[in-house]
């Protein structure tokens, strides 16, 4: 079973990301998938987490992910305030939305840090709501590139299921750009 913990800020769309990832993973052959928000009162801008589990059998654990093998950070300002590597399994993958090189982030050396300018990808296609770049779908491109657990084809299909028309197209374009600019 792959266990993913998401770190984002309220309003940034981590819960949406987690849901669409579950759909993309199901389409990619994981028969058992769950995604859940961290349960609480969400406030815009406050650090939040979400949990995703992927397996080839039904998921029977509904508690929050505390020992992730994959961590996704939607906002690199969270690295200073949220303990994003807490409980992370050695050898795990950490995916960070940042323009800073992985080596300069000063994270644990027993995990693989992968970066992508997801905010830039969202801005490039005009995914900006109330002045905020919407990174929730673009980050899925980085997830596909960093882990190989889901295909871009299925990420695109899952985004297409969650959004309609031109919104779907722009979100898919952002995910593609993020996929391309993912750096190990």
């Amino acid at each position: 079973m792959h266990e993913v913990r998401w770190h984002g800020r309220g309003g940034q769309g981590a819960v949406t990301s987690a849901k669409i990832l579950a759909d993309a993973a199901y389409r990619s052959g994981f028969e058992g998938v769950t995604s859940q928000p961290s349960f609480g009162a969400e406030r815009r801008g406050a650090p939040i987490t979400a949990s995703t589990r992927l397996a080839h059998e039904p998921i029977r654990v509904l508690s929050q992910v505390t020992e992730p093998d994959i961590v996704v950070v939607l906002d690199d300002s969270l690295l200073a305030v949220a303990n994003a590597t807490a409980g992370m399994r050695p050898g795990g993958v950490m995916i960070v939305n940042t323009t800073v090189a992985a080596a300069e982030l000063g994270l644990r050396d027993d995990v693989r840090v992968v970066t992508s300018d997801v905010t830039g990808a969202a801005e490039a296609v005009g995914l900006i709501v109330s002045g905020q770049p919407m990174v929730s779908t673009a980050i899925l491109g980085a997830f596909a590139a960093a882990t190989g657990l889901v295909t871009m084809e299925n990420v695109e299909a899952a985004i297409g299921h969650a959004f309609k028309g031109s919104a779907a197209t722009r979100n898919i374009d952002a995910a593609r750009i993020s996929y391309e600019c993912t750096r190990a």
């Binding site: 849901k19 579950a22 058992g32 998938v33 769950t34 859940q36 928000p37 349960f39 039904p58």
Partner: peptide, 9 residues
Amino acid sequence: FLLSHTVMP
């Protein structure tokens, strides 16, 4: 939340 807000197939 455990079911109401958790996605699964």
